[in-house]
Computed example of a mutant assay.
Amino acid sequence: MALLHRAEIRPTKLELLAAWLPGRPWFHGPAGADVVRVAGFRFDDPAGAVGIETILVRVGDGPVHQVPLTYRGAPLEGADGWLVGTTHHSALGPRWVYDACGDPVYAAALAAAILDGAGQAEEFFEVDGRREYRTPSMTITSSGGEVGGAAVGAPRRVLDGDPTIIVTDTVELAVVRRPGAGEARAGGTLSGTWPGQATPLPLAYAAPR
């Protein structure tokens, strides 16, 4: 379960992405155009310490890009190269926002979603002591895999391309940056649908090492 706050965030996530995306090797879009949110989903962090959100965005008339993010209350050691930026959350205070592909908590959550069918987190807003369910803006499904239940371990190597490859001790994960582009890969598959995209498109893959 993801418990959300109706809070002010400065700069916003989309403002952070507008400055960060053009420098990514996998980004395709016009310069200077607004970043628009298309859809998104979240995973649970079992420890409850890290926010894990995947956002689908479009820049101008460019393609849809998949951007997984993690939100932390303190810097992640050794992950400066994956920092998208810092922001201030009116309820939680300073937050460090990372490209989740460089965050071990995301790697474990993604592997669990693909190989164990963990699925996406249910989202709730807390309002006046009550929890209000937020209808998801997209749906994800998993085809499963061959190493369900195996410990993923910390990422040993991350190759920042399209797809972005996350190599751990037991699993190789591939995160598709532009859904619908590129060729299918072997292994378990995480697919998604969202408004305007009724046919499931692969979002990520997981294969044993």
Rank of each mutant, 00 (worst) to 15 (best):
Y98C: 01
E77V: 09
T70S: 15
V64R: 11
T54Y: 12
T135Q: 15
Y71H: 02
R156T: 11
V105W: 09
Y106S: 10
P136Q: 09
G149V: 05
G153V: 05
P75D: 07
T86P: 00
W96I: 04
V147L: 12
T86C: 04
T139C: 02
G85H: 00
A150D: 04
M138Q: 15
D128Y: 02
G62P: 12
D116L: 03
D103S: 08
E77T: 13
D61V: 12
Y133V: 11
S142G: 14
T86N: 01
S137V: 11
A100K: 07
R72N: 00
L56D: 08
V127D: 03
L83P: 01
A150F: 06
L115F: 03
D61C: 02
V152R: 09
T135Y: 10
S142K: 09
L56H: 07
G78N: 07
Q66N: 09
L76F: 04
A112L: 01
P68C: 05
Y106T: 13
A150C: 06
G60M: 07
D128K: 08
A121Y: 07
G129H: 06
A107M: 04
A91V: 14
L110F: 12
W82F: 15
P94Y: 00
E126A: 13
G148E: 09
G148R: 05
A154L: 11
Y98R: 06
V152C: 08
Y71M: 01
G117C: 07
Y106A: 09
D61F: 02
D80F: 00
S90F: 03
G93D: 04
A118Y: 02
C101R: 13
H65I: 12
T139F: 09
Y106V: 13
F124L: 14
V64I: 15
R95A: 04
V57D: 05
R72T: 00
M138T: 08
L110H: 11
G102M: 08
G62T: 12
Q120L: 03
D116T: 09
A112Q: 09
Y133C: 00
R58F: 09
G81C: 02
G144L: 09
G93H: 02
A151S: 14
I140F: 05
P75E: 10
V57L: 04
S142F: 08
V64N: 11
T87Q: 02
P155T: 11
A121N: 12
A91D: 14
L69M: 14
A91Y: 05
L115E: 15
A107I: 06
L83T: 01
W96N: 02
A109W: 10
R95G: 00
A74R: 15
A113N: 10
A121Q: 09
L69E: 02
D103M: 04
V64S: 08
Y133K: 14
A109V: 11
S142C: 06
P75G: 03
P155D: 13
L92C: 00
L69H: 05
E146Q: 13
T139M: 08
L115V: 05
H88Y: 13
L115Q: 15
A154W: 04
Q120N: 03
I55W: 12
V84K: 01
D103W: 07
D116Q: 09
A121G: 14
W82H: 14
V105E: 15
A108V: 14
V147W: 06
G93W: 01
R72E: 00
A111T: 14
V59Y: 02
A91F: 07
V152E: 06
I140W: 04
A74V: 06
